[in-house]
Structure formats: C-alpha cells, structure tokens
Design a protein around this nucleic acid. Structure first.
Length: 592
RNA sequence: GUUCCCGUAGUUCAACGGAUAGAACAUUGGUUUCCUAAACCGAGGAUGUGGGUUCGAUUCCCGCCGGGGACACCA
C-alpha cells in the first residue's frame, strides 16, 4: 500500500465504497470524516450515528459492521491505521508511529505536497478579483484586508492546482471621478503627476468635492455631469483622468511591493467602457432589464429581497438615468469578459462585507443573463470580510476623520521589529537587521488580519497590530529560525542527515508528527470556504508542537537513529512552516 | 421600517451538528552551566436571553435584548 497523502480523504472514500455492502446502509452514506480531538484519535467518522437513526438500527452495532466491512477489504493496513468504535457510534482512526514515520519519509518537500493538494483544484481556471481599490485615495488601514486576504486566498488556490489569473479590478470609472474632476476644476488645480504630494492633493480635493456634493444636490448633479462627460469621451476629461489614474496606481504599487503582491492584470472599470452597451442590449432583448424611474434595472422576483414587490425596493441598477454606467454595468461586463476571454471556471471576488447584497444580485442576475444567452456560468464566489472599526465602532473610512495610513502602520511595525531584532542580535550588520525587521513588521501586520475569521469585524488597535508575542507571525517565524539554527550548527541543510531515521517515539515526537500530517486537513479546511485563518490556526499549533518537542527532545544527540529521526522532524517542520507562511504571504527569515 | 452579518474567559479570537468548548494576551506559579528564553511547563477564568428540533446544540429554527452593515442610480 502506498502512503496516503491525505488519510482523511482516503478513509472517507473507503467508507463510502463499503457502505452498500453493510445492511442498513447504501450508496448515499455520508461518513462525515473529520480530524478528531487528538485525545481520542486522528480522524473520526460520525456518519454511522445518523445513518443508524435513519435505518432504525443500533448505532454502535452499525458502526461495528461498517468497521468489519472496511477490514474485510484488506485495504486498511492495521499496522498503520488502528480503528475502533467509541462513544455513541463514532469510528475512530488512529495513525500508528509507523504510519507517521512512513508519511514523513514519503512527503518530504513542497513538490510532494503540491502534487497531493492539486487534486483539490487541479485543471480549473480561476480568476480572482483583488485588491481592487478605488482610485485617487491614499491607502489607509482599511485597505490592509483586501490586499492581505486576497493574496492569501490567491496563493491557496494556486497551491491547490488551479490556473490562476489575478485581476486588479480598480474603481476608476465611477462617480467618485465626477466628484474629483469637479473639485479640481473648481479649485483651478493643476495636477502634476511628478509632484510628491500629487496623491495627497487629489485626496484633499476629493474630500472637498465629497463634502460639497453631499451638502448640495445641485453640486452632486454637476459631479454626475462631469462623470457623464468623461464616459462620453470628452478629451480634456480623459486627459485629466489618465493622469489621476497614473498617480494613483503608482502610489498603490508602492504599497503592493511591500506586501509582495503582484497582480497579473489591471482591468479596472474603465476597461469595460466600450463593453457595457452589449450588456444593455442583451439584457433588454432577453427581457431581463427594464426601465424604471429613467434607469435600466433588473429585478429578481424569485428572491424576495430583490423582488419588484419587496417592501424596500432594491433593484439592480444596470444603467443610470443619465445613461452612464455604474458598478453593476461594469461588473456584468466583467463577468462576461472573464468567462469568454479568460475561460474562467470560477471567479472569486474579494471585497468587504458591505457589498454582499450587490454580489448576490450580480450572481443571480448574471445567472439569468447567461442562461438566456446560452452561456455557461462560472462558479461565482464572494469572499467577503468584515470591517476594521474605528474607536467609535464605525468603519474606518477616508471620508470621515483621518484613519491611519497604511504606510504609517508598516513603518511603525518595521521600526518596532527593528528595535527587537537589534536587542536580540546586536552583532548582525544593520542592513540585515533592517531587512529582517521589514519582514517581521509586515508579517505581523498581515498575520493579525489573517488569523481571525475574515467575516468578523475588528477594531483597530496599534497594540494588536504590532504585537509580536502569542499567536503572531513573529512566533511562527521564530519557530522556523530555531529549526534552521539547528541545521546551521550541524553544517547541513534541512532534508540531509535523515538516513536511518526511525519512526517517532517520544510523546513530543509523536505529537509533532501528527501535527505535521495535519497540514493536509488544514489545507482542505482553508480551501473549503476560502478562509485563511484555518491555516493560521494550524501553523500556530504546529509551531507550539515544535516548541514542546524542542524543549523536551534534544536533536543533536549521539544515537544516530534518534538524531536522524529528529532531524527529519525538524526538516519537515521547517518546510511545512515555510510553505504555510508563504501561502499566507509571509516570507520566513533565517535568523531573528 | 425591510433585510443581512455578528454576540463565546477580564481582553482578542477558535470550534465543518459530536466526546471534558480550544488558544493567545493579561493575571499567577515554575523552568536556562545544553540545538536562538521572541521559548517551554503548570494554575484560575467563558457560550447575551427565553423557547424549540436532536441520541447530542456555541453551531440549526423561532422570539427578545445588544452591536454593526445594506436599502434608486457611490463602489
């Protein structure tokens, strides 16, 4: 028997296979296989309990029959996986030290894990939409989330075998431009793209315009007129727009560089300016869109919230009454382009949770449109995240008050990390300390954002974002540093010195080995609904298991077999930690 | 008002209907002639509220209380 990369999946398949041969079960049997509390087992199957209820059978007896059927296949090597029925009818599977040792020897590096994980999304073409900022604003702390979550989700998808296109769908064609152009004209401002304060100037002007249009409906109409002029191709407006976008993109890129973010294409809303007419035409001829209060809208009568009969009307406005496009128009055009041009099997949108209604409408209406025009709809997923709240419990916004600038946050985190690095490693050259500090500082920031469930809101706090202890990136990075230090001391690289490695033996070795195998389950879980925090939780547990092992079991011992197996455990720990950290967008360091 | 999301130790967060609700910070007791103590080992401390479904509920359903978001041409 070859060594299973993902025992949970294999056991699940095995249980499904034998179920029809067990009296009371059939092919619809759901094993409900999942990682177990390590006090009980490595994996447990709970499906027999529910199935027994359906079949009016004794759950323990059914579970036992299932176990017997599994054993009868001869596909389960009991020297590797022990199985027993427990509690009300759980089937517990426990990996033996022999199985742990075999796995560690077989799945020794990233290429092996990639190959194993590629069964999840291999052969699929995915377009991911992130970080998609609005143009002409400085990035503030609120922009941390789409960058960091989007990047982690993208890397996870790619790791699991999908062919990925990262599309930065910037907001460069909306009413905010009307407001900005209006404000620029009013102020008689001359935009100089080379000026170091160009972006600050734009932001200030936007704020002025924003205040103005809020206070005065006539000014809002003027702003809309500016946008309409731009969308109609007015040369002067276009020239100004081009410069604004250039200034904005350059500023964003400086931030992206520091987060290691590289998108493949930047196809903002403006890219679709000549593609929205097709959308209007198709929707109208299919009878899916209609005029309402001068605008072109879509209703979803099958979904009460978006029905024309709803108490509070929420139409999907596809074209504004002045004829210009909006978010909905460009998103529909974008959907079509990604389907036809990129041949997407799946599209992932990474935005904040306030846009949930919009995406539900987009997905529903997009499905109708594609059905009417006989197109195949890709799988559409909205990966949304909660808001970073200010002290008032409200979202941190550029419009109100002055939220912390993202660059300021990066600089502060880097500075604090530099102090810590200098304290710990005063002998390292300053350039190296600076580089290490930058890695740690940025890693700490992104880890805070990734380590909690993305759908939760959280309050901005300097303390939290700059914490270096506990479940933080520096803790994980430190685990890597300690492993690597062992190899450095020994004059070898991870992966060397493993010949003759025996199976894990001490409690801490076994606990570490089991945790290493848990990588596959963590990937499954993180991929399931694209929630990177599952990977964070796993890496933290792995680092903690390594910490316990490190304290209890010396690696550099005389007994060659013991030394070899501990070096193997160290090598796998550092490789999986580094691989996992990179999936989160964090680049590990050699020393800190 | 309609609707969506959320409510778990002092704090910040986990828990895909499963076994004794798991961590981190903070509090507190301990560990270093030995591979980086940014570490390790231990202690105390929690499911807003009232019902329901279930063998089993933090998880699903209903009511209430509390916080946040969206709701006609912003994205």
């Amino acid at each position: 028997m070859s060594v299973w990369f993902n025992p949970a999946r294999e056991l699940d398949a095995l249980l499904r296979k034998v179920a029809p041969s067990v009296p009371g079960l059939d092919a619809s049997f759901q094993p409900e296989l999942r990682p177990s509390d390590p006090r009980h087992a490595d994996f447990q199957s709970n499906g027999a309990i529910a199935a027994a209820k359906k079949a009016k059978a004794n759950p323990r007896a059914l579970a036992t029959a299932l176990v017997d059927a599994v054993k009868a296949t001869g596909e389960l090597d009991e020297s590797l996986i022990q199985v027993e029925v427990a509690g009300p009818g759980f089937i517990n599977f426990k990996l033996t030290p022999k199985a742990l040792g075999a796995w560690l020897r077989e799945y020794r590096d990233e290429s092996k894990w990639r190959a194993g994980a590629s069964r999840i999304m291999g052969g699929r073409k995915v377009v991911i939409d992130y970080p998609s900022p609005n143009t002409a604003k400085q990035m503030h702390v609120g922009h941390l989330r789409p960058i960091v979550i989007g990047e982690a989700v993208a890397r996870l998808i790619e790791f699991c075998g999908a062919e990925l296109v990262r599309d930065n769908h910037i907001g460069d064609w909306g009413t905010n431009f009307g407001i900005l152009i209006l404000a620029i004209k009013r102020a008689g401002f001359q935009l100089d793209a080379k000026s170091p304060t160009a972006l600050e100037d734009l932001e200030r002007l936007y704020k002025e315009g924003s205040v103005l249009t809020k206070a005065d409906p006539a000014q809002l109409d003027a702003a809309r007129a500016e946008l309409a002029r731009l969308q109609q191709g007015d040369a002067a407006s276009l020239a100004l727009w081009t410069e604004i976008v250039a200034v904005s993109n350059a500023a964003c890129q400086r931030i992206y560089d520091q987060f290691g973010l590289k998108t493949d294409v930047i196809l903002g809303e403006s890219f679709y300016r000549d593609k929205v007419d097709q959308v209007y035409t198709e929707l109208q001829s299919a009878g899916l869109a209609e005029e309402s209060e001068g605008a072109l809208v879509m209703w979803c009568d099958e979904e009460p919230r978006f029905s024309r009969h709803a108490e509070t009307k929420m139409p999907f406005i596809v074209r504004k009454k002045d004829g210009s496009s909006n978010y909905a128009s460009t998103d529909l055009a974008t959907l079509l382009h990604r389907t036809e041009h990129f041949k997407a099997d799946e599209i992932v949108y990474v935005t904040d949770g306030r846009q949930q209604d919009h995406f539900q409408q987009l997905f529903l209406n997009g499905a109708k449109w594609f059905r009417a025009t006989d197109r195949k709809l890709p799988r559409l997923r909205h990966v949304w995240f909660g808001t970073i709240l200010g002290e008032d419990g409200k979202a941190i916004k550029t419009k109100s008050g002055d939220p912390v600038r993202l660059q300021e946050l990066i600089d502060e985190a880097t500075e604090r990390a530099f102090t810590a690095v200098t304290e710990k490693n005063p002998d390292l050259p300053e350039a190296e300390r600076r580089a290490i500090a930058k890695s740690i500082g940025v890693a700490a920031l992104r880890y805070v954002d990734l380590s909690s469930n993305r759908t939760m809101d959280y309050s901005f706090s300097w303390t939290k974002l700059l914490a270096f202890e506990g479940n933080t990136a520096p803790y994980l990075m430190y685990a890597v540093v300690r492993v690597r230090s062992i190899f450095r001391k020994n004059g070898i690289e991870p992966g060397q010195g493993e010949a003759g490695a025996t199976d894990p033996e001490t409690p801490t070795e076994i606990a570490l080995a089991r945790k290493l195998l848990g990588f596959t389950a963590a990937l499954d879980q993180a991929l399931e609904d694209l929630r990177p925090h599952h990977l964070c939780t796993y890496l933290h547990e792995l680092a903690a298991a390594y910490g316990a092992f490190y304290a209890a079991d010396s690696v550099l011992v005389d007994d060659p077999a013991v030394k070899a197996r501990r070096l193997m455990l160290c090598a796998r720990t550092t490789s999986i930690m580094e691989c996992g950290l990179r999936l989160l967008g964090i680049e590990p360091v050699e020393r800190m």
